[in-house]
Design a protein around this nucleic acid. Structure first.
Lengths: 354, 354
DNA sequence: CTTTTTTAGTACAACGTTGTTCCAAAAAAT
DNA sequence: ATTTTTTGGAACAACGTTGTACTAAAAAAG
């Protein structure tokens, strides 16, 4: 592996100036076909390829966007990343990925690592508010916050209709006559007061949807049925079910705040001999692919992840390319996806069957 | 968003030379604490951050490695990518991702897109041999091939013990007295001849393990039980089961060549009323997280994906940092993971229970 | 046959870093 | 008080590309 050929080497070999080589590479300027051919051949023979660092420096941009997100141990993250990569490629951008796990101090800790990666801007995903928004936002590159932030108005963001979607799903369940609905993935120590106080983050927002649905139907909430789910992994769903059953509570429906929790919950329920949906119905949130192939297939909320990702990328590139207007926020549309793990009443709106 | 501050701006503001600023940034040279403080403050006030393109150009390296792989619609890919990102970060490298799907002309088509992304080297993942290895290998940056290639000796590669692992699993099943074993994910038109001819790629290699196990146990292969599985997605697993059952064959065990196929197969079997493992046992390959939470939990082959990824990254960085020896190849160690979807006889070796 | 326009190309600077070389001031040794 | 050594810092070049400004040759117009 000898030293990489540069444009100067090519120019020398072809007997032209470096600018002419550059013109061949970029289809600029004008030149005799024979010259172009000579340059092309020299490029071929030397195995030359353009040095991106130099081009970037000159251009003042890397044409790379960064994606900072949880590790792909969450199926949602993989789904999201896929969509981001697609959307970026469509606009001619590459994607640099920086992941972090729930055990570290989280997003805040990798923020410092991002500038090093040289992207023109970053999509930051997080499922709860950042301890110090400033650390993320005071970077000197455009940032789009993706996730369940309350909108703080300091940078562009994409969010999901967390509260509305859960409210709609729970309402739909209540309408089918069941009030005995558990919730997995709630904020710690869930009671009305602490959920209302914790007014940011997917946990709280989705839990609020549950509360609002009950309130609106004049139903009483049994707070023992709201259990937390740590990191929202499948293993947390298992544990949540164990902990719920250990209190001798066994709701007829389990609303899980993401699909991974739901899949873990179903696993543990079935291990203990419960039948789904006959004994317990289970509902998820995210509509990741895994839910389709779960046994039974998972009834869930589709928050339009592709739209979520596409808008994040679109807003980010828009900023990178010079837009300077005030912070914008985009909220996706949701729909309810009925499969076999839970049955929704026919009259529910926004329903989609797959 | 005004123009980004440069090292020159900082130097000017602090009343020092640009090299002194550079020294502060890189902890090189020596200087009075008071000077350092002045520079630090100027950096702060101007919100300066180093321009990576310039640094890369000067350094001749981006400290980025590229990962070219299937889209994350395969859980295996997400798992693999996670491990690659981790391994790279540990060594101070970032990761640029370039994905491709099965519908396109595949890996070959994105090869041309990789140089554009400016990584110092690439890990190429593919589950079958490339139509034109040359296109990938004649790049002017280091490449590590990850996947089920036969070793062509032209670049470093990491592979799994595909044949051995399947052979061991199938042997273990044969030892428990069952010879009625289906195989999902085989090469198209599977018969002894075509599998032996197609001597490259995970499909063929894993299928060979099945054949060898039967041969070694003196058992007769019912070729009708070998069905293909297109892209090895869960939906392909579903279809494979349908197609198998439509021929009135119903084996006692289904060996699926990856976990996604197995999960899809279990879904379709249960939808049709089969009990697992009582009526049909199901086995997978990859040991992705999803298998643990499937219903029932999936018995599978663990090919050591973390080791697979770590060695790919390690070899690549080794090349990037100057190693020039002959092409190397690393093969991971496998183990059998027994869960509830299939029971292995106790005497089988290499067993791991989780 | 001259003048103007177009084409085909060159030379040089600049992007923002960091490494090398060098010099002046301060500290230490004589 | 003078010489030697160390320290703090500056000036400049280079990394490989592309944009600007320019020139010589060829083609078109008069």
């Amino acid at each position: 592996m000898h030293k990489r050929a540069t444009i100067t080497d090519v120019a020398h070999k072809a007997g032209v100036s470096i600018k002419t080589v550059s013109n061949v590479l970029n289809d600029t300027g004008s030149m005799r076909p024979s010259t172009r051919r000579r340059v092309r051949q020299a490029i071929e023979e030397l195995g030359y390829s353009v040095n991106m660092s130099a081009r970037m420096l000159k251009a003042g941009s890397s044409h790379l966007i960064g994606l900072a997100t949880f590790t792909f141990t969450q199926p949602f993250q993989a789904y999201f990343a896929d969509q981001v990569i697609d959307a970026a490629r469509e606009r001619g951008y590459g994607v640099v990925i920086n992941t972090y796990d729930e055990t570290s101090s989280g997003l805040e800790s990798i923020v410092h690592d991002c500038p090093r990666l040289g992207a023109d801007g970053w999509v930051f995903f997080a499922d709860r508010p950042l301890r110090n928004n400033g650390a993320v936002l005071n970077q000197h590159f455009p940032v789009v916050l993706a996730g369940d932030y309350s909108s703080h108005g300091r940078s562009d963001s994409v969010i999901m209709p967390n509260t509305e979607a859960v409210k709609s799903m729970v309402s739909s369940l209540l309408e089918s006559g069941i009030e005995d609905i558990g919730l997995i993935g709630a904020p710690d120590g869930a009671d009305r007061q602490s959920v209302m106080n914790a007014n940011e983050g997917g946990r709280a927002l989705r839990t609020q949807g549950y509360i609002e649905a009950f309130d609106e139907h004049g139903a009483r909430i049994n707070w023992k049925l709201l259990v937390s789910g740590e990191h929202w992994h499948s293993s947390d769903g298992e544990r949540a079910v164990s902990s719920l059953l250990s209190t001798n509570e066994c709701p007829k429906v389990l609303m899980c705040l993401n699909d991974a929790l739901a899949i873990g919950a179903m696993h543990e329920l079935q291990r203990r001999g419960f039948r789904i949906p006959e004994d317990v119905q289970v509902v998820g949130f995210d509509n990741v692919e895994d839910g389709r192939f779960a046994n039974p297939a998972l009834t869930t909320i589709d928050p339009d992840v592709p739209g979520f990702a596409a808008h994040a990328v679109s807003m980010l590139i828009n900023r990178i390319e010079g837009f300077e207007g005030p912070a914008r926020s985009y909220m996706t549309k949701y729909s309810l996806v009925e499969r076999s793990s839970a049955r929704l009443p026919l009259q529910s709106r926004n329903r989609k069957v797959r």
